[in-house]
């Protein structure tokens, strides 16, 4: 398993380099130019100067190599410096946003907590709701509980999150006034009152995303349980006189979780990317909103860096899913 993991990690390097190149090229060829962000009142020679200072005039491959160096060398050094108070990266040029002129990674670190608290907790809550629902639905297939679960799950993943989001805002903010419709990023949790406020403003976006996640994962859980409930080893467990609880929650569940855990692990990167729309609807100032604004502003370094980070996460969680699979299923031998 260890050699497998190491081999896969090494194989990920060329993959990621290739992805980074593709992202760089695609983003660069996209229409829109950083110049469009400079007001027309600025004289042409000054404009040129600005562009040069941004490095936007350099040939593509120079910018690509510089970005590679900054992403894989400078930024890790900066991170190391902040963590351990050293100053190895002193004087090195970091990846800088064309829009805000501040380092891209600093902005990302600022936005990360919003995304993690809203989208991340929605994912966790979604999983925690989905597993028991999936298990029970399968065990009592075609019962009213199962039918209701199927119906809600169908709504959950067929109605888009921007629609459920807007409906929730209309009902609970506009009409009932229970929750705020705009997420206040500047809110700091210092006491009970501000904590309640934070919970209140998280409630609706979390509910929308949790419903969506729970809908999908509960379906996976249900069908995996159904597959396994029909297996011969279940009859063996019953023939041994094991209690239903043991048959279902030990024998069947342990087998059913193998594919579901993989699906859950593969879904984690979408926490960062997939919530773009919900962040827009609820005005959550997270990574999704950051990416959208950067695209609008032709902020190439920001778009390239964010997209590449998503790519790294996807590759990483693919590897994690494979390793988990190997750990959960004794029949899998990677070495």
């Amino acid at each position: 398993m260890l050699t497998f993991t190491i081999r896969r990690l090494l194989m990920a390097i060329p993959t990621l380099l290739f992805i980074s190149l593709v992202i760089f090229l695609l983003v660069d060829f996209a229409p829109g130019s950083p110049m469009s962000q400079i007001p027309l009142t600025v004289p042409p020679e000054v404009r040129l100067k600005i562009i040069e200072a941004m490095g936007a005039n350099d040939p593509l491959f120079v910018r690509y190599l510089l970005w590679l160096k900054q992403f894989f060398w400078v930024e890790p050094l900066v991170l190391f410096d902040t963590l351990f108070g050293t100053s190895h990266a002193h004087g090195m040029q970091r990846i800088v946003s064309w829009q805000s002129r501040s380092p891209v990674m600093d902005i990302i670190w600022q936005r990360l907590p919003q995304t993690l608290s809203v989208v991340g907790s929605a994912y966790v809550i979604g999983v925690l709701i989905a597993l028991p629902i999936g298990i029970y639905s399968a065990y009592r297939q075609y019962s009213w509980f199962d039918q209701l679960g199927t119906f809600i799950a169908m709504i959950g993943f067929s109605v888009p999150t921007f629609f459920t989001g807007v409906v929730l805002i209309l009902v609970f903010s506009v009409n009932l006034g229970w929750f705020p419709s705009i997420y206040d990023t500047s809110l700091r949790v210092t006491d009970w009152e501000s904590f309640l406020k934070q919970v209140k403003q998280m409630a609706m976006p979390v509910a929308v995303l949790a419903l969506y996640n729970a809908a999908q994962i509960s379906r996976y859980m249900r069908s995996s349980m159904l597959d396994n409930l029909a297996q011969d080893y279940v009859r063996t467990a019953r023939a041994k006189g094991m209690a239903e609880r043991v048959v279902v929650l030990k024998h069947v569940l342990r087998n059913s979780l193998i594919p579901v855990v993989t699906v859950i692990a593969l879904g984690i990167p979408t926490i960062f990317g997939g919530a773009i729309i919900t962040e827009q609807v609820f005005k959550v100032n997270g990574l999704g909103a950051l990416l959208i604004n950067a695209i609008h502003g032709s902020d190439l370094p920001m778009v390239q860096t964010l997209t590449f980070i998503f790519a790294v996460l996807i590759v990483m969680f693919n590897l994690i899913a494979d390793v988990l699979y190997g750990m959960l299923d004794p029949r899998i031998r990677y070495d």
């Binding site: 080893y233 009859r235 063996t236 023939a239 041994k240 006189g241 094991m242 342990r254 004794p330």
Partner: peptide, 29 residues
Amino acid sequence: RGAKVGFVFQDPMTSLNPVFTVGNQIMEP
């Protein structure tokens, strides 16, 4: 079941639980 009456089924390839050790499955009853 499993105490006074023991059962052996037709297909040994699928009758044991693949994710538990053989020892675990004998120890259960």
